[in-house]
Each structure stands twice: as C-alpha cells, then as structure tokens.
Design a protein around this nucleic acid. Sequence first.
DNA 1: ATTTTATACAGACCGCGGTCTGTAAAATAC
DNA 2: GTATTTTACAGACCGCGGTCTGTATAAAAT
Lengths: 199, 199
Amino acid sequence: MNKRKMQAKQTKKRIIDCARELFVENGYYKVTVEDIIKKANSSKGGFYTHFKTKEELIIHMVPMVDEAYAEFSKSNKEYEDTIDKISSFINYVFVIMEKDIGLEFISAIYSSQIRDLTSQSFLIESDRMFYHVFNDLIEEGQRKGEITKDLSVKEIISIITTCIRGVIYDWCLQKGSFDIVSYGNNLISMMLNQIKLQK
Amino acid sequence: MNKRKMQAKQTKKRIIDCARELFVENGYYKVTVEDIIKKANSSKGGFYTHFKTKEELIIHMVPMVDEAYAEFSKSNKEYEDTIDKISSFINYVFVIMEKDIGLEFISAIYSSQIRDLTSQSFLIESDRMFYHVFNDLIEEGQRKGEITKDLSVKEIISIITTCIRGVIYDWCLQKGSFDIVSYGNNLISMMLNQIKLQK
DNA sequence: ATTTTATACAGACCGCGGTCTGTAAAATAC
DNA sequence: GTATTTTACAGACCGCGGTCTGTATAAAAT
C-alpha cells in the first residue's frame, strides 16, 4: 500500500470517527455533511469520494455487529438443544439492537434500506454472517432430528429473518415503546415451535 | 361550509389528484413538489397549507384501503372457521399491497414512517380498521373455542400485525422479487397454527 | 530524469424540500 | 355599511444533500 492510499484510508477513518461522535451527540438527522467534514478537516469532494451518500455512513457506524455475531455463535455452547441455541442467538440479536445500535440508528438504517428501488440493500448483504450462523444451526437441528425437514434450510431462514425484521420494524414504528427483547423472543419462540420436532 | 373552505378543499383535492397522476407516471421520488403545484396551478404556500410534508401526500394516495377492508370483512362469509376467515382477510391485505398499492408506494410509505423519531406514524393510526376487523374475528374465535385464550386479543393482534409488516418490509427490501401473497400466506398460516385450537 | 496519467481532495454550484413574509379577499364584529 | 380579523394562497428565500470542475501531487511510464 502506497502513500496515497494510506492517506485516503486515514481520511475515510477520520470522517467515520467524527461522524460517529456527532451522530451520537446530536442524532443522525441533525448532523449535516457540512458539520462532519468541518470536524474532520475535509471537504465535500473528500467526503463523496469515500461515500456515495450520507446514508452510507450509517453502515460504517455498526461495523462490529458481524464480528459480534460470529463471536457469539462460537461461544454459544450453553444449550444442548438446537432450538435453544437459535433462540439464544436471536435473543442476542435483539439485545444488540437495543443496547449497542439503538433506536435512532436502527430507524435510520431500516428506513434508508427501502427508500426507493435504487437504494442499496446492504441489510441483505450484511445478513451473510447472520445466514451462516443460522445455516449451520438449522442444518445441525435437522440432522439431529430436532427441526422439521418439511421446509428447506433456506425457507426456514427466510421465515425467521422476516419475523426478526418485523419485530425490529415495529419497534421503530412504535418509537421503542415496548421491550424489543422480550416481545421479540416471545414472537420468535412461537415461530420456532412450528419448526420444532418433538423427540 | 362557506366559500373559503370549499375552494380550499377543491385546491387540496386538485393537488392530490395531480400528484397521483404524476406519481403513477414517474414514480414518487422523481416528481418534485414544484411539478405538482405547477400541474395543479397552485404554489408552495398553497401546498404547505394543506400538507405538512411531501410524504404526507402518500397517505392520501391510498385512501380507499380502509374502506376496502371494511367492505371485505363484511362480505367475508365464505368460511365457517374463524382462522380461515382471518387467513382470507390477511390474504386480501397482501393482494391489495401487490395489486392496488404497488411496491414503490409501499416502500416509500414504510420508509417514511420510521425515518426519524418525529415522523408521524399514520400506519399505526390507519391500522384502526385493521384492528377492528381483527378484534372482532379473534373475539369470535375465542368464544367459539377455535383460538387460544392463553393470549389476549391485543397480544394476538400485535403478533399478527408484526408478522404482516415483516413480510411487507422484506418484500420492499427484496424489491418485490418474491410473491408476497403466497409467501405471506404461508408465513401467517404458520403463526396462526400457534394460536389455533384443535376441536 | 522527464513526461504522462491517475486520484484524493477542494470548493463553487445546483436542485429540491421546506420556511417565511406578504397580500387579497372572505368572514366576522360592530 | 364600515372596520377588523382571518385564511388560502403566492412566491422569494434558505439549508442541506449531492454533483461538477479544477488542481496539486503521487504513481507510473518512458
């Protein structure tokens, strides 16, 4: 990596860091791109070489989530039963939403992801880790005869993610007025009942 | 109603009608407020006395949905079983989404509803008819012993609406690349299995 | 070493959503 | 009938997200 690219990388990092501080302090929509570049000693040109839109910045606000998922799934040995493992993982997802990301960021993310037909759907992409974790768990469950084989792994994953997104969307819609963790766990456990096999 | 208010009402209607035409023709985000007021022979001032934001216009694009719901629920006599009635109603909701409202409008609506913490949540309000229909059906189901009493009517309604919104949100996220009607029906029927009682 | 090309960035500029101020005419007060 | 208040609307204006053009300097080519 040469001098040019190193400096560019630093600038990008500086912008992200400054943006994070400002967002946390004032909220996403109150912070302007102007504010960010001023704080980061950059310019419009600089900003838009690194980011296509202001919204793209949000993605970089939550870079650790994937790692957190991976980490958690590795250490998710508390339960023997696969369904319990899945529940525990999903519980963790909701906890992250509430504690680490927070209502405002999630709202901004979920809103921007569907704004129009051209909006980049990083949510789908970023679900890769998500998918991996689920994929492994569900395959395991089917192998051990704890999860129905009437549905394919893919089908089960998409049903679960749809429900999770439904819970998160509702949480945003109601402005966080209910406990996402307990509500989410309840709803998901009902869904999981439908794919669970009795031993 | 006096002359003043009649004219105001006409202006508002003219704006809504022109907006609808332009939206259908070019898509919500390509149409500017300027375009709308020009076509409607109005002005910025006129527009913003009738609507708080451009997004508020979207609400008026789908004014018939509530009526359609009410209408449908009245004539929803095809099935004896309450669960079947509920399924049939929810199927109808998805059909309306796909056929009458369409992906782009729904995306814009769902996006705008959670943009920030101040955004007006007409989705919740407009669910009133929705709630009424469900309320009656679920009460009926519990009375007839077809639906569990382990959960309150309110709890059941919120679970179902969360799932419906999850399906719709996912449909927007995937840019309509799956059949919302059949996918939605499947997912909802799984959920309904959990509240159904065997006779 | 010199020329050519590429790129990170600066900053003027634009378009559009939304605000603010002014005004004509209708409604109301007297 | 005259004076006062209200309001639907007009249109100039503003702020912010995003684009476009220009430039200095590093990298590549010769």
